[in-house]
Design a protein around this nucleic acid. Structure first.
Length: 201
DNA sequence: GAGAAGATCTCCT
DNA sequence: GGAGATCTTCTCA
């Protein structure tokens, strides 16, 4: 088994994130989301995402301009946007585009790679298929909270995203987003075809 | 300052 | 398949 040393992984550079939101969303599929907690490393492969825009996207928090909550969406790409919802759950997003242009990609599901025992403990669930197959589940498994809102993902510290050690080929499926009242018509959800950890078919 | 809705999950039937 | 939990944030008065 591979060494679970975080030095094996390098954070993606700023230039990966400061592009169009839809481009970043599709390219995030297959990448590893890495969470470092003290000496422990948790990693999951990103298998499902949703893109959120600005004033062109009624489904986005940034649709009506900047508020204290969505401020990070207007930051330079490469930051973490974490918000609390439904009184229980955190959702983890990756900010995209250049500074001043709102955009983010919601990470909806991961395939567990490393630190599975830690994720089982954090979730209070043993079933691996039920560990990270939803936006609220993966933040609980990786212990991501509002403390991480605004974190810079290019620094490679507590949370970052890296290339997998052995990239695989896969097909991307594009569908409409989930759980929205507004903007539900836009096909801005992307997932890896056939992956068991995708939250909904 | 009040009221309503929400990028969800879990448990129950 | 459906409803309740639970609380933050936004909107409007």
């Amino acid at each position: 088994m591979a060494q679970m040393n975080k030095l094996d992984f390098r954070p993606l550079p700023r230039s990966f994130y400061t592009r169009r939101t839809l481009t970043v969303a599709k390219e995030l599929l297959g990448k590893y989301l890495i969470r470092v907690i003290g000496r422990h490393v948790i990693a999951g492969k990103i298998v499902e995402v949703e893109a959120y825009g600005g004033e062109d996207d009624p489904g986005s928090h940034a649709y009506r301009g900047m508020t204290p909550r969505n401020r990070v969406m207007f930051e330079e790409g490469g930051h973490a946007y974490v918000y609390f919802t439904y009184g229980k759950h955190y959702c983890f997003n990756v900010v995209t585009e250049r500074r001043g242009v709102p955009g983010a990609v919601l990470v909806r599901a991961l395939e567990p790679i490393y630190g599975i025992e830690i994720m089982q403990r954090n979730r209070g669930v043993r079933e691996i298929l039920n560990l990270t197959n939803g936006p609220g589940k993966l933040t609980q498994a990786m212990r991501i909270t509002k403390e991480h809102n605004g974190l810079d993902l290019t620094e490679g510290r507590e949370i970052f995203i890296s290339q997998p050690e052995t990239p695989e080929r896969f097909e991307v499926v594009s569908t409409t987003r989930i759980g929205l009242r507004q903007g539900a018509d836009k096909p801005w959800r992307f997932y890896i075809k056939g992956n068991k950890f995708v939250s909904k078919k």
